[in-house]
Design a protein around this nucleic acid. Structure first.
Length: 320
DNA sequence: ATGGTTTTTACTGCGTC
DNA sequence: GACGCGGTAAAAACCAT
């Protein structure tokens, strides 16, 4: 997964090994990932910058803390108290019978309270679901945090009331991906969450209406192309050509209302033919998660435009 | 709810290896 | 014959109104 060879010692971290996109570093979470394909370069990278500075020992002691950083992915933010069961006091002495009884009662209630209310419990389940699905997809933990945060917000706003937990989890992850510029389709995510993408789309729209207030533009065709190429291990030449076509076609007239995925598939298909690689429509359609018919239709439209251009270019020569 | 647009489903015919 | 490709009609899904 991590393509660095130890003996080389050096690895250029500025671009993604899959799609050559410039990588984005997330200092807060200590990881670097590709905004196009979601490739995580170094999930366990250590944040080398000091979190705080201290002039002297006293101050350092004041500022240091104990425990893991709090996280959105656990229902209680990872902040929990455990009452130990060995029934000793803070000095290590055994408790007397009365205090022992009290401690046991406290322990029991603490355990019950932690996930007692139905809200807490479902939150806990949902966050687990999010983490699980995101892990399957190999998403960077910053996205998981974001998704968890989104889910919390939706739960607070009672958006997720009486909705499928998996559905809301998938929708949260998808929104988190969109926000973080990680190019994953709703289909992929719903599959990982074990849910129909149709249903997930519904929940996503809910989320958009209730939680998200900024318009998130859909990923560009170029991104889809890169993703597709990277997924299918296609010759980079084809990618270049496809991107070229997409740019030159300046497709404002053909693209409106069409799924970018289908368009990208068509460009890649045409590029593959032009480059003499000829990838079957069937395969491209499968990887782009659209139908062959859609690929064909987009192809037809693009080619119609290109034929006209070619005629215009060729016509003067034909006249001479 | 509805209507217009797009995508999918399912099927057929054509040419090539 | 299997395969890739192109097309079509009808159903399904999507989206704004």
């Amino acid at each position: 997964m991590y393509p660095m060879r130890r003996e080389e010692g050096r690895f250029n971290v500025s671009e993604c090994p899959n799609c050559k996109e410039k990588l984005i570093g997330d200092v807060d979470r200590g990881e670097i990932f590709c905004p196009k394909c979601g490739f995580v370069l170094h999930d366990q990278a250590i944040d080398q910058s000091a979190e705080w500075k201290s002039a002297d020992y006293e101050e350092r002691m004041k500022r240091s803390r104990v425990g893991l950083p709090s996280t959105n992915t656990l229902h209680d933010f990872g902040l929990t108290t455990d009452i130990s069961s060995d029934l000793r006091d803070s000095h290590g002495k055994y408790l007397d019978p009365y205090n022992r009884q009290t401690a046991q009662r406290m322990k029991k209630w603490q355990r019950r309270i932690r996930t007692s209310s139905s809200g807490e419990r479902s939150l806990s389940i949902a966050l687990g679901k999010i983490t699980e699905a995101a892990d399957v997809l190999g998403l960077p933990s910053s996205v998981i945090e974001e998704a968890s945060h989104i889910f919390r917000k939706s739960a607070k706003a009672a958006v997720s009331k009486s909705k499928s937990i998996s559905g809301m989890a998938a929708a949260s992850i998808y929104l988190a991906c969109r926000r973080s510029n990680v190019n994953r389709s709703l289909k992929e995510i719903s599959k990982a969450a074990g849910i129909q993408s149709r249903a997930a789309a519904k929940y996503y729209r809910l989320l958009i209406n209730q939680v998200e207030h900024n318009y998130i533009p859909p990923p560009s065709v170029q991104k889809y192309i890169s993703k597709l190429v990277n997924k299918e291990k296609i010759n980079p030449r084809v990618e270049r050509l496809a991107l070229d076509l997409a740019e030159k076609a300046n497709e404002s007239e053909i693209s409106s209302g069409k799924t970018p995925a289908g368009l990208a598939a068509a460009y890649v298909y045409i590029a593959s033919v032009l480059a003499g690689e000829h990838i079957p429509q069937r395969e491209i359609a499968e990887f782009a998660e659209v139908t062959e018919v859609t690929v064909r239709n987009r192809c037809r439209e693009i080619l119609e435009k290109f034929v006209i251009r070619q005629r215009l270019r060729v016509a003067p020569e034909a006249l001479t």
